Structure formats: structure tokens, C-alpha cells
Simulated scan of single mutants.
Amino acid sequence: MPHANGGDADLYYEVHGSGPAIVLSAGMGGSGAFWRPQLEALSRRHTVILYDHAGTGRSARDVGPRSIAEMARDITRVLDAAGIADAHVVGHAIGGIVGMELALAAPERVRSLTVVNGWGKADAFLRRCFEVRTGILRCSGPRAYVRAQPLFLYPPRWIAENIAALEEEEAHMVAHFPGEDTMLQRINTFLAFEGGARLNAIRVPTLLAAARDDALVPFYLSGQLARAIPGARLAEVDFGAHAFTAVTPDVFNAMLLDFCGETDR
């Protein structure tokens, strides 16, 4: 499988399908595999690029602390390696923060921006959620951290109905965990992000996709982003929680395809 080589970290990426490009940037875990529920539907119309963030997955691991600006440049390195001039940039949570940074730093590479359950500034509620998660990681280790993760990502009923698949996924995630130091560095970096007045300078077409039942990143934070980014469109779903892209993939896929198609037209 290809890597974007050079720079300070080799980045694993995959290219699927054909058509206008979409690059998908994962959330806290950093793995491109997060987007598997989107792959088939999107690749029918688009060139779809999945990649693992530096320090995670199959990308270079021992990269040390990484700034959001560096993570945004990583997307351009992946696009360059794939021979793609510009793409619809889609980011989940912290992947959305990276997408916003890229839209500010290199708007010519961004056909459109989609931020899924993101934020422009972490408030007291979000900080407390991550305080609990980091406490679990520090005190009980990666296995306990991964064990607790579905409680922050998915609706309770969906967890109950998909427990067998979650148990299987849990073993895989523990085996491929980025490492305690890397995860803590990532959490600290993104909690420190404050878009502020800079977000007003984003001029690419922007979709803010958010779930009203997200218990980790509250829906109102997407509303704040909508007021900060000129012309941003806020699209909401009632069910699916923080990872509604996996819980109700058909809903998200249709939403994204409509937005990208409208932008391309």
C-alpha cells in the first residue's frame, strides 16, 4: 500500500474509486479505517482517499507532539502523493479541526469542507469528558480506555444491539493502539485549539454535520461554528451520537454526496 514519504513522517494512505476527490480525516483515533462505512457509497462517484494520521495506524509512529498546522500539511502531502490538486475535505471531530486549518492555510486545495461533530473551542463540558477519558488512560491503560470508548461514541441502544461487533473491534483497537503518550498529546493539542476570529476567514463551501444526541461533543458547538464560518450550512440528525457516520452511514453518505455534488456543480 502507498505511503506519502518525505517530510518528518511517512503517511499511509489508500485511494479508491474515481471522480472528484474526497479526502477523509479521522477523529481522535486517527485511523482511516474509521471511514469504512462510507467507502462503498462515496467511491461510486468520487476518488476517495483514506489516510492514517501521523503517529497512528500504519503511518510513522514515533513522531512526537504534532501541531494542527503540521497535521493540515499532512493532508496536502497525501494529496500530492496521490497526484490530486484539490479535494472535498471531510473531517470527523479533530479531523474537522485539521480540515478548518487546511481551509485557512491552503484554500486552493479544498473544494469544500465538511466538519462532523466538531468544535471551534472546547468548552467546560467537552473538557470534562476528555478529563475522564485521559484519567482512564493514565490510571487504567489502553485496554480500559478502548473499553470505555463506545460509551462516548454511540447511542446506548445501538451499543446493546451491536455488542458482538464492538467486542471484536475492541480487540483490534487494543492491538493497534497508538500509544498512551501519543494519545495524550493528541487530546491536549485539540483541547487547546481556539479558532476564534480566524474562522471568519474560511471562504470555502462548508457543511457542519452534527448529531443532536452527541454526548461527547454537544450539538450546540456545531451551532457556534455555523455562526463563526461565513455561509456555513448546519445539517443535523436526531440519532447516531458522536459517531453517527458509523451508526447511520446511509444518512451521512447521502448528506455528504448531496453537498459535494452541489459544490461541484
Rank of each mutant, 00 (worst) to 15 (best):
C260P: 02
R143Y: 13
R212K: 15
T189K: 06
D52F: 05
A160T: 09
L153Q: 09
F190L: 02
G29H: 06
L256Q: 03
C129A: 11
T182N: 05
L225S: 02
F259M: 03
R109Y: 01
G240L: 03
A226F: 04
A82I: 08
D74G: 05
E262D: 10
I159G: 03
G118A: 04
G57L: 11
F130M: 00
H242R: 00
L234N: 01
G223Y: 04
F252R: 01
F239E: 12
G6Q: 08
H176F: 12
I49R: 11
T114M: 12
Q38E: 11
Y220K: 00
A60P: 15
R157N: 06
V110D: 02
L104A: 09
M1H: 13
E40T: 13
F239P: 05
P155Q: 00
H88T: 02
E161L: 03
W119L: 12
G91D: 02
A165C: 10
A171I: 07
A21I: 06
R265L: 09
A9H: 10
R143Q: 14
A175N: 05
A243L: 06
A21K: 03
L102A: 04
L191H: 01
G141W: 07
L39T: 10
M71A: 14
H53Q: 15
A105H: 03
V204W: 03
G55E: 07
A232Q: 05
Q224E: 09
D214P: 05
Q149I: 11
I187A: 03
A9Q: 07
V204C: 09
V110M: 00
A54E: 14
A93D: 12
A81T: 07
R128T: 15
E131I: 08
N117L: 08
H53C: 12
I97L: 07
I75M: 09
A26T: 03
V48T: 11
M255Y: 02
L216T: 08
N162D: 01
L153Y: 08
T76H: 04
L102V: 03
M173H: 13
G27I: 04
A124W: 10
A4G: 14
P65R: 14
G120A: 01
S112E: 04
P65F: 12
D213N: 04
A122P: 03
A81K: 07
T47R: 11
